[in-house]
Design a protein around this nucleic acid. Structure first.
Lengths: 229, 229
DNA sequence: TCGCTGTATGCTGCATACAGCATTCTTGAT
DNA sequence: ATCAAGAATGCTGTATGCAGCATACAGCGA
């Protein structure tokens, strides 16, 4: 779960090294997720069991199991008798998912303000400050990773596993979109402002304010990514 | 999706007839979901690939694929090297899921008040009226099925697929709980009241009122089921 | 030239076989 | 009698083979 919300940084894209042999299923699932995020498997492209299996160094059986798993997550689409394709998200799909994510994070914010420990909040504050440094240095990729981590942490300290679950599923669907969405400096500044408001609200345990901040942040995210679709 | 939210009525539980050979994957997934809902596969029990495959008349390969699929939905838990067990939900799990479902249905209600057509609303009104008849007749199972169908329809007319998706996943997890939760007459009457309020709000397209009604309904659902855990 | 049909290719879907590991039972020793 | 160690059983995990079907291309007819 934690892992699913993280961008694995700029993997070198040489995705032809054989897979580790421990916990093969999780390894395959993770690798395919990465390949989708990085564009190695483009949205809408067919996933050829034979070729992909050869590339990853595994047989078709565990690969097919991984595809079924990812299909249930909504990252892969299965057509009976016609194989698997990487699911393509329409602008409406993205907007819908962001709408739901906004509601989920708003709920998480409210719950977090009640359930979080002081240590939880200090931890997020530390991440937030580190993120500001990365913003000052304009280190986009590291900023992005830490940003995702902060949102994951917010879900974690809300202490609601079901909430974190469904949030993770939708987050995973948008990972590719966000990965390629390189917004301009003005929009980036807006995102940082949102995060400031979130931190303030969390530290004063103001549930409504935090919910509003997270909601607004998600709406602005849509503004940032919608042109890239 | 539609199917996943429906209780397949009182299946005779003779789950040893062979499975239909068309679209085997979906058939197996659906059958296992039913077996979990009906208690044929009790929560916490191990799922023996050999036995279950023999019972269903399929080999282990498609069965394992179905189990992976259900694991991604959160109905099955996989321990590497130790097989699959039917996931057991703690009272906190149920409460958490209901909390999220409340937020999701509230959002759906708001969206539905904007996006629904008049025909959509008339359709739900018709289902609602039929449900009242079933309540008057104290036809529990049919009432229950129609109740689920109404909630599904509410999600459908909100015109947000991502929302319907995650709602369906959480709904599926609680299906067994609700299946066994036979509340008393007073609580049943309360649920019917909630539905009256929902219908009124929807027909006047009052998003806030509908969201509140759905939220309250979900909180009451928790009150109804929590003692059965 | 366009459309339809037949055929061939190659992929998917499923079953089965085998290897590796977890669990359990048995046996021996303390 | 109890515990530990080893062996046997049986399950899971993976690979491979085969059957069936979808698709694409070529040939034929209108």
């Amino acid at each position: 779960m934690e892992d699913a919300l993280e961008i694995e940084a700029g993997l070198p894209l040489d995705d032809h090294r054989p897979i580790v042999r421990h916990n093969l299923h999780d390894a395959i699932v993770g690798r395919i997720r990465d390949m989708i995020t990085e564009g190695v498997l483009p949205a809408g492209s067919r996933v050829h069991e034979g070729n992909l299996g050869r590339d990853l160094g595994v047989s078709r059986t565990p690969l097919r199991e991984a595809l079924k798993y990812l299909a249930s997550e909504g990252l892969i689409e299965l057509s009976p008798g016609r194989g698997a394709i990487v699911r393509k998200f329409s602008p409406k799909d993205v907007r819908d998912a962001l709408t739901v994510l906004g509601a989920l994070e708003a709920l998480a914010g409210r719950l977090a303000c009640e359930a979080a420990t002081e240590a939880d909040i200090r931890e997020i504050r530390a991440m937030h400050d580190r993120m500001l440094e990365l913003y000052a240095r304009r280190d986009r990729l590291s900023y992005f990773k830490l940003n995702q981590a902060i949102h994951s942490a917010m879900l974690r300290i809300s202490r609601n596993d079901a909430l974190a679950d469904v949030h993770g599923v939708l987050q995973a669907r948008l990972k590719r979109i966000r990965y390629i969405g390189n917004e301009g400096p003005d929009k980036w500044a807006g995102a940082v402002e949102d995060h400031e408001a979130m931190m303030t609200a969390l530290e004063s345990r103001d549930g409504d304010a935090l919910a509003n901040a997270l909601s607004r942040h998600m709406k602005r995210t849509w503004e940032r990514v919608k042109d890239a679709l």
